[in-house]
Nucleic acid binder design. Structure first.
Lengths: 203, 203
DNA sequence: CGCCACTGTTACCGATCGGTAACAACCCCA
DNA sequence: TGGGGTTGTTACCGATCGGTAACAGTGGCG
């Protein structure tokens, strides 16, 4: 808790030009966790890949679990930045927002480097309730459900909860399918399916 | 390769009344893999939980990876037995078959012990292409896609490939959602969403 | 200059990982 | 009464896991 940042304002540290060790480690960890999975990546591998060693790792992070939680919070923040960025150009037009979301989702998930959703993958790997990352995952997915339902309600759909849930299932299913199918998988049909669903709900 | 079964026909061994050590180990492994994940369960834990020891484990299985592959093949077989059992009563009525499938899927996935789809979870945990279980997962998911598309075609739907993929995304999304939501999660809306989709496709 | 925060290095800890050798007991069947 | 196949037991292997102690350098800033 107290050894994450010893002194100095972190914003002040970022002003300095070259990257702090902590940032290099964190960036490396994010990439390795996403690419190979959380359990598959050890602390030693992270530190080594970041060009430093395990001791420097533990000078910046309290534990691996804590780093994992921070990784998940990072993924969560980035997701909502992405979401808000997609939605912004169509303010007040919930139907157009949803379509833009699914179009972007298909594009993103079909990209070569995609390994689905890091939060969803963590939901599979992290089973222990005490793990500090578990709460982050649950909160993230709950918020997704809330937003999809709100979107469905805003477009005046019949049975907005059902439509919101259905849209969420479509998106989550795409994340999962990406792990077994190359680019041309079922994800490609997500936008079309979302449109059909919204049409059918009178939105 | 040669130490999985040393002698005797395995079918002959099953004729004998009490459970072989191999079967106890395998059954235990299946439960632990599904409940806690593949990477989270060690060989020692499996053997111990099965009331034996690591040495007896390696007398029955060539390696942990090989056991994992066998676990996945087991899950695959069971899944199709389940599928065929659901579909059988509605032969020749693809629309009714799909509805029965989704109703059963919702029930199964909402049950208390459910941890989603073991194959899908393995798709998250197993990244290495060389792992003997990876091919099993890919084949399984490909077959699911094939069957859903065939089902959509059989019900004379417009754009059967799109509908088939959409149905698959709904189902897979439910598996994923189950890991973060308790019983009343978005999975509950899967059957309704599937109906709406099929209606919209004129099936 | 000297101080101090940051980093690198090395060695170590106990625990667990997947996997193996050697030997003693057992039980069924010939 | 034998075996032969199946088990249990113990000890061990090298490697890696997450995590720590102690010390040597280095850079910037007062």
């Amino acid at each position: 808790m107290m050894n994450t940042v010893k002194s100095e304002d972190p914003t002040l540290a970022e002003q300095a030009g070259r990257p702090r060790v902590r940032d290099r480690i964190f960036e490396t960890a994010c990439e390795l966790f996403y690419r190979h999975g959380i359990r598959a990546v050890g602390v030693d591998a992270i530190a080594c890949e970041a060009g430093t060693n395990k001791m420097s790792f533990y000078r910046s992070f309290a534990s691996k679990d804590e780093l994992v939680a921070e990784y998940l919070r990072f993924k969560d923040r980035n997701f909502w930045i992405w979401w808000d960025g997609i939605v912004a150009p169509h303010q007040g037009q919930p139907r157009a927002q949803a379509e833009a979301l699914f179009e972007a989702h298909v594009n993103k998930t079909c990209s070569k480097e995609s390994r689905g959703c890091g939060l969803a993958n963590a939901a599979v790997e992290i089973v222990e309730d005490e793990h500090p990352g578990r709460a982050v995952v649950i909160a993230h997915k709950s918020e997704i459900r809330r937003r999809f339902r709100a979107l469905a309600k805003a477009m005046q759909a019949r049975e907005p909860e059902q439509l919101g849930d259905a849209l969420m299932l479509l998106m989550e299913g795409g994340y999962l399918a990406r792990l077994t199918f190359p680019k041309g998988g079922p994800v490609s049909s997500a936008l079309h399916a979302a449109r059909v669903l919204m049409d059918a709900h009178g939105a």
